[in-house]
Structures are given as C-alpha cells and as structure tokens.
C-alpha cells in the first residue's frame, strides 16, 4: 500500500500548489468553449440530418470531436503536469527520503504514476460531465461514449508515462517538460508519415499514439490498440525504474 501513500502525497502536493487548479480551470474553459461550438454546429445541421437514414447522431457530431480535441489539449498540458514528478525531488534532495525508506524503486515509480494518473482522471471526469449533461435533452450512444473515454484515458496515461520517464532523466523540471513535449508531439505526428505510402512508413505510422486513439473515437474497440497502450505505458515505466536505479550507481 506504499504505492498509494506515495500517490496520495503526489496528488496532495499537486493540489497544494496553484498549478493544478490553474490547469483544471484552463482546460475546462477551453474544452467548454469547444463543446459549445460543436453543439451549435450540430443544431445548425440537425434539420438536414433528419432526411438521411442512419445519419450520425449527437454523440458522433458533438462528443467524439470534443474527445479528439481534448486529446490534443492534454498533449500540451501533460508535460507541465509531469515535469516535476522526479526532477523536482531530485533538485530539492527529497529523493533520499524515498531511497532510504524500505521502499523499492518500482513502488516509487508506480506511486508517482498512479498519483499523476488520478489527476488526469479528474480532468477526464470533469470533461465527461459535458457530454453527460446532454442526457437531459437527448439520448447518447453510451457505448461509443465509453469507448471514446477509455481511449482518452489510455492516451493520456501513455502521455503521463513518457512524462514520468523524462522527469526521471533530469533535475530541471523545464527540461523534462520540453523533452516530454517533443516526444509526445513526435509520436503524435508520426501518423503523417504513414499517409505518404510505402511499407516502412506504415511502421512509423503504427507507432503513432494518435493512430490507436482514432478507431476508439469511431467506436471500434480493437484489443490490439489496448495492448499497444499498455505496452507503451509499461515500457516507459520500466525505463523510469531503471533510470532511478541508476541514480545510485553513478553520479
């Protein structure tokens, strides 16, 4: 249960600084703006849609674009959230508290990861309120909604794992943030390489985080996408554990 002790402290420290509140507020503001934009769009085209059989509903036209936008915005925000995870402890020399306690490196990393993950779950929960509020006036495709939300959670968790690893590499939070942002952006746009055709480009395209998120927004729930994210997260967590272990070896 040490993992949860570390996670709880991480979450608590986040909320004790204005950073977490500011991030929650800004994300909520921007996403609400997008949400209203999509709703307005839907109201405009709604009369036309009625003429077609099997026309896309409110979930496809409002909620899924919203989740798509949320993915992009969280890509910009996650580096700021994860940058301090380990680098700041290293800079303030508080890591030795964890190192000299009867706690393994795996527990430290998992604790930190779960701590930051809980915060992103709060963001996603606040985000999910908006589409759920539509239930007051209309019916939602709940299956599609949950597939989309699950996709978003997996996507953001993989961002968090990258951020955690980058934070373990340095003692400067800003450097961690910038390198996390670089990696995330690269993994996002790798998809563009695949569109130009060619067999080798397809491999790059497959590595893109975006590529495994899109199907879920369409309601395609492919277990290989889930496994991709789980492998992705595990890889970066293992790298972080190894990096933290190496702290003791060299200096």
């Amino acid at each position: 249960m040490i993992i949860f002790t570390i996670a709880a402290r991480e979450l608590r420290s986040l909320f004790l600084s204005p950073l977490a509140w500011a991030i929650l507020a800004v994300i909520q503001f921007i996403l609400t703006y997008f949400f209203l934009l999509y709703v307005e769009q839907f109201i405009k085209i709604q009369p036309g849609l009625a003429q077609y059989p099997n026309a896309p509903g409110v979930t496809e036209i409002v909620v899924m674009p919203l989740l798509d936008t949320a993915g992009l915005i969280l890509l910009l925000v996650m580096p700021i959230l994860t940058m301090r995870l380990i680098s700041e402890e290293r800079r303030n020399r508080t890591l030795s508290l964890l190192f000299s306690a009867p706690v393994s490196m795996t527990e430290i990393i998992l604790g930190k990861f779960i701590g930051i993950l809980s915060f992103t779950l709060i963001i996603v929960a606040l985000l999910a309120m908006m589409p759920l509020s539509l239930l007051a006036g209309t019916n939602l495709d709940t299956g599609l909604l949950f597939s989309g939300l699950l996709g978003l959670i997996l996507l953001v968790s993989s961002f968090a794992a990258v951020g955690l690893y980058m934070s373990s590499l340095t003692s400067q939070p800003t450097i961690a943030a910038i390198s996390t942002f670089g990696v995330l952006l690269l993994l996002w746009i790798l998809d563009a390489a695949g569109t130009t055709g060619g067999e080798s480009d397809r491999v790059f395209s497959y590595l893109s985080t975006l590529r495994h998120f899109q199907p879920m927004l369409k309601g395609v729930f492919d277990s290989s996408d889930i496994i991709y994210y789980l492998l992705f997260i595990t890889t970066f967590l293992v790298l972080s554990i190894r990096r933290l272990d190496a702290d003791r070896l060299q200096h």
Binding site: L16, S17, N92, R93, T94
Partner: peptide
C-alpha cells in the same frame, strides 16, 4: 539537506 516537502 533535510529531505522535506515545503508545502506540507
């Protein structure tokens, strides 16, 4: 350097 969290 005492390993303290200033915000707690």
């Amino acid at each position: 350097t005492p390993p303290i969290y200033r915000e707690l």
